[in-house]
Design a protein around this nucleic acid. Sequence first.
DNA 1: CTCGTTAATATTGAATTCATAATTAATTTT
DNA 2: AAAATTAATTATGAATTCAATATTAACGAG
Lengths: 230, 230
Amino acid sequence: MTKILQRNLYREVADRIGDLIEHGELSPGERISEKQLCEKFGVSRTPLREALKVLATEGLIELLPNRGARVVRLTFKKVKDTYDLMAALEGLSGELACQHITDKEISTIRTLHNSMLEHYHQHDLKAYFELNRQIHESILAASQNEVLQEMYSNLSQRVKRVRYSKKMTQAFWDQAVKDHENMINALEKRDSQLLGQILRDHLCNKLEVATLAGVIEDGAPGEGHGIVNA
Amino acid sequence: MTKILQRNLYREVADRIGDLIEHGELSPGERISEKQLCEKFGVSRTPLREALKVLATEGLIELLPNRGARVVRLTFKKVKDTYDLMAALEGLSGELACQHITDKEISTIRTLHNSMLEHYHQHDLKAYFELNRQIHESILAASQNEVLQEMYSNLSQRVKRVRYSKKMTQAFWDQAVKDHENMINALEKRDSQLLGQILRDHLCNKLEVATLAGVIEDGAPGEGHGIVNA
DNA sequence: CTCGTTAATATTGAATTCATAATTAATTTT
DNA sequence: AAAATTAATTATGAATTCAATATTAACGAG
């Protein structure tokens, strides 16, 4: 059932530029040189410029007419707005998942949940985050709403470089795990209202986590360092 | 405070193609000829193809590699998924609006509301719809969340050609007006939870209205008539 | 030396051209 | 005549070219 993903050159290029942005190789605010990227990828300007237009539509970059493209600056406000939206979408995904999910899918998520708990007790943050991601992705998939998945994926992409921060206080972590206990219980009861509420309020959907990481890009406009201002 | 909208050729072309889709001049499923559109708009293939890529990203058309573009078919499922999502976003917009809205903005919406009621009593559906739209737009604007506005606007665009149907039963209309009464009351009390709930459940965000209109495009694949299947 | 002006350069926007894949038309074979 | 194969045409994908705009460098006046 995995979708056949059609590989056009422009889509390939867009994805690679997306990676550059995610890994900080293109700094927010800094002008993106078409020539440089063309040389880096070994393509002409035509597919590159198509990719830039797509990335602008996806909200990752901004296009200033006749003045080139630049990576969108993730201001405090913009990240907060995006998180608020993602929380609402996660809530919806929970509600819909309760309506559509099979027993088998629930037990798969239960397994992921237990595995995540292990990593929590072992204080393995990286492994915890990965399992956490898989759980949320599974709920999203169980929602059976492709438009929702597409939109969530886009928003996730936008804030990826400030998400899943390395820092996290123990208190936050404890709360997140409690949320997850409530989630899996709500899911097993198929209580859509409850799961929706939990996910909307879930800590990971809240701004505090990213704020802590000190990765907000509210710095002076015009240069591209990603200076803290949180 | 109105945004300066930058006019690139590709954006202009994308908007015009969007209009063609909205008004049914390009049928779902039917192949879109680059050559024809180039001639119609008097532009070369470069900006036109950029526009097509943007429209595909926006979810209005699909691009089949080496096989051209076609207008996305609005199946029952796709419209339902989109409506579910829009309902969640409207709910969020209501919650956020309650947090940010000024007394002045509320009174403006109250005025719109009263005006809408008049049109309701006069059975002027067209005028009613316009006021209705303005109210929802005002709440969305009051949310102060630009990302939310952008996403909602995109979803709205996708289903525009099946929305605001001409048909509407009196019972549905009565219920919608009741919802609006509750909305304005919740807004004036700044009860974010309540307004969120009302908007999520609001009739206009539900599928029934579009379903009635008989504009769902679940017809046989390959041709583009927009046949009913509801 | 600084500010403002003009010329040179570089970059972007869009049309054209070339290459490749898909579709249609023509031809052949059974 | 129908199906299959091949040739011709058309459409798409991507590189190149040309034009317009912005940026930088050079120059000159105060």
